[in-house]
Amino acid sequence: MALDWKIGGVLLGLVFFAAVLLVKPIGVSTQFVILDGIVADVASPDFITQTEDGFTSTNAYMAKSDGKYAKSAANPLNYSFVFVLAMMIGAAASSYLRGGFAAASRLPDVWVANYGNTPLKRYMVAFVGGFIALYGARLAGGCTSGHMMSGMMQTSISGYLFTAATFAAAVPTAMIMYKRG
């Protein structure tokens, strides 16, 4: 059972605050690029190379902004990448403590209510959804965490633009696809 919105909201707000107080605002989607970079560099060691004053890559996106993504992929033990790994630890611990693993082993109720017990179809939709969401997040330069939560917390114009566009697409799409549940 989810926390009451007031308690959950204040606690989540304290996490946002702790992040910006101690280090920097929260963000997630860049780390998909970093993991891609790590994998690509293992597969083809010339993908990321060290230069005199940092790192660069044969990929223009990895190499942009003086190779900051190339640098992160070359040194995965950096703040932002470890942050996302730690999110997984935190979520797993929380789910364990509330006994959530049994429910998570089933398909989402809203999926079953609309499409029945069709795991293969669900996995395909989740895969396609992930592809579109992360392509979009990288084009936008951030996702629900970096643009929506951290962005609007800082009164960033890009955060408001992103949030408006996201909901303009997400609400009708969800209403069409999930008529029940």
């Binding site: 809203v110 992930g130 969401a133 084009l139 936008a140 629900t144 997400a170 969800a174």
Partner: peptide
């Protein structure tokens, strides 16, 4: 691109029920 990417993320989020962090 923030707007175009936001629209795309919205579609991916809505069909899957996940965003990158969640």
């Amino acid at each position: 691109g923030v707007l175009i990417g936001g629209l795309m993320l919205g579609v991916g989020w809505a069909i899957s029920g996940f965003c990158p962090g969640t």
